[in-house]
Each structure stands twice: as C-alpha cells, then as structure tokens.
Design a binder for these strands. Structure first.
Lengths: 156, 156
DNA sequence: AACATATCCATAGCAGGCTATTTAACATTG
DNA sequence: CAATGTTAAATAGCCTGCTATGGATATGTT
C-alpha cells in the first residue's frame, strides 16, 4: 500500500494551510485580529450590511461556523448586528469604525504573508500554484451544474 | 489596495485544506476515524513504540496538539501509551490491533479522496501541484540551516 | 385564523489547531 | 546530596471548523 505523505495532496494541503495560518496569525495579532475573521472582513470591507446568510453564500463556510465567528467579531468590536427591519429573522452585519480602520494594515499583512510563503517560487510558479489551487477548488463544487463541454446531452 | 481572495495563495490554501478535510472525514467516518489522527497513524503504521516527542519531531504539529490527539486516540482504542522503562518521562505509543486493521481501508480512503479532489487536473498538473506544495513547505522551514549556495562563509 | 412549513440564526457539543503554563522525571553541578 | 536546571508530557484556555438540533420569524394552505 504505497502511501507517502509527502506525495499526498491532501496531506500537503493541510500542512500548507497551517503554515499560512500560523504566519498570518502572527502578523495580524498586533492588530487584534485572528485568522477566522478574515474571510468575513474581506466581504464586509467590500460591502457591509450583508446578512449572515449572504456571508455564508459568498464563503464556503458552514452557517454555524459563521455564526460563531460573527459572535466573536461582535464581542471584539469589529461588527454590530442589527435585525433587518422588514424581516426579523435576518441579522444585518455592519462594520465598526475600528474594523474599517484595519482594512489597510490587515490586507498588507496578508499580502506580506503570501509573499513570504511563496518566496521560494518563481513568478511563473506562483501563478501556476494559484491557478492549480483554483482548479482544485472548482472541481469540488457540486452547487453549479458542471458546464457541459460538448454541449447537448444532459438527461434524455 | 488590491486584494482578491481568489488570487491569494493563503486564502486558497485554507479553502483547499478544508475541502480535503471534509472529504476525508466523510470517507473515514465509517471506520471510526477522524482526520487528526491520520498523521500520527501513518508514522505509527510505519514504526510504533515511538514517543510523543518522536511524533512531534516527524510531524509539523505542536506538542500540545499531539498530546490531545493521542489522548483521543487512546480513548478510542487506537493506541495504548506505556511509560518507557528507562526514562519515566517518556510515554511510548503502541498501536492496538484495531488500529493495525485500519491501515488498509484508511489509506484506501485517503488515496480515493486525493484522486477525487485532483480529478480536474491532468496527470502533469497533479505532479506540478504536489511539487509546488512541497516547495512552499520547504520555504518555511527555519529549523534546517538554509544550505549555503556558495559554500564557505557561515560565521567568521 | 390556525396549522404546517420553510427560513434564518443561535446553541450544543466535538475535533483539531495554537500558545502558555504546570507537573513529573531526569540531569547537572555546587 | 541538595539545589537548580532541563526535558517530556499534560493541562488550561482559546480559535476555527464541523454536524445536529432548537427557537423565532415568515410564509403558505386550508
């Protein structure tokens, strides 16, 4: 049974993700941020007033995970949550001034971490790496009907 | 501030790792295994009687994380821990029969998950992907003195 | 209007990762 | 040998992820 961990994509992916997370965590700790808030912050910096459901739809994160993350973010003064006026089930998420002020430094930190982590690759290799990761992520997307290369035949 | 998450290696790495973990978790759940035990099991299938410290040295995992993982593994009947005869601080880790019996199916599951996750890539792309991940991991290895390209000059 | 259903979010409980600290055993040294 | 230091593992406490379940608010149907 040939299984060499250093040739297993899953094993390596896990390892790499931990390396990135450690690195980024160290860089944003001085900002009072943790890694888990990053995805939500990126969406909210782009457009806030989103509902939790909107965030879940944009990020491949479970609803419960997002609920917990948002709770920590609110506790830490990054967001406030207010009920939607016309639908009491929805909680709209708004950034605080503090969170807005962190956009620049936080993104700088992420860019620096990426640069460092990829510093052993050539420019071409970095492009390949990112492109391959995107392709792998695309592969495991059942939501969208896989686009039919030949066209036509779908089901009778 | 140009930061596009789908072009950020760290972001993508995190996403990919979660996809692999979800997939593998589903496959090994019927075996009564969880993903966190995998690295330790791979080492122990190779050679058991290792100490916790040995495992930590072989895997890029913190000591406390390993201690917790081993505790769960013992609870679940995958390993037993016995004090080293000549050094009472060391706990040697031994696989149970149950854990030995799981080697085949568990590795099959991992191979299947890798195959599925990479099914959107060509053979050549898969090789590239694995090789690039290895390179990135190598980059963040401070432990080993970076091998001196020119030779000579190290410190006076 | 009442009841069933669907939707949105929160909560419970666990795995697995981390840092920091504690405990136990061994090693060193005055 | 006693004090001090070092090493191996365990524990505390947190964050981030998951599944499963519950609670509250709409929505639809009779």
């Amino acid at each position: 049974m040939a299984f060499v961990k250093d040739q297993s994509a899953g094993y390596l992916a896990n390892h790499i993700a931990r390396l990135f997370a450690r690195g980024l965590a160290a860089r944003i700790k001085p900002l009072g941020l943790t890694t888990g808030t990053f995805p939500a912050l990126l969406e909210l910096w782009e457009k806030d007033g989103l509902t939790q459901k909107d965030l879940v739809a944009r990020l491949d994160i479970e609803q419960a995970t997002m609920a917990n993350t948002l709770a920590r973010m609110e506790r830490d003064g990054l967001i406030v949550r207010r009920k939607d006026a016309s639908d009491g089930r929805k909680q709209r998420v708004w950034l605080t001034e503090r969170a807005r002020g962190l956009q620049g430094p936080a993104i700088e930190a992420a860019i620096a971490e990426n640069a460092d982590a990829l510093s052993g690759l050539t420019e071409e290799e970095r492009r390949q790496f990112v492109s391959l990761m995107r392709k792998v992520i695309e592969t495991s997307k059942p939501e969208e009907t896989p686009h039919q290369p030949g066209g036509a035949i779908i089901s009778g």
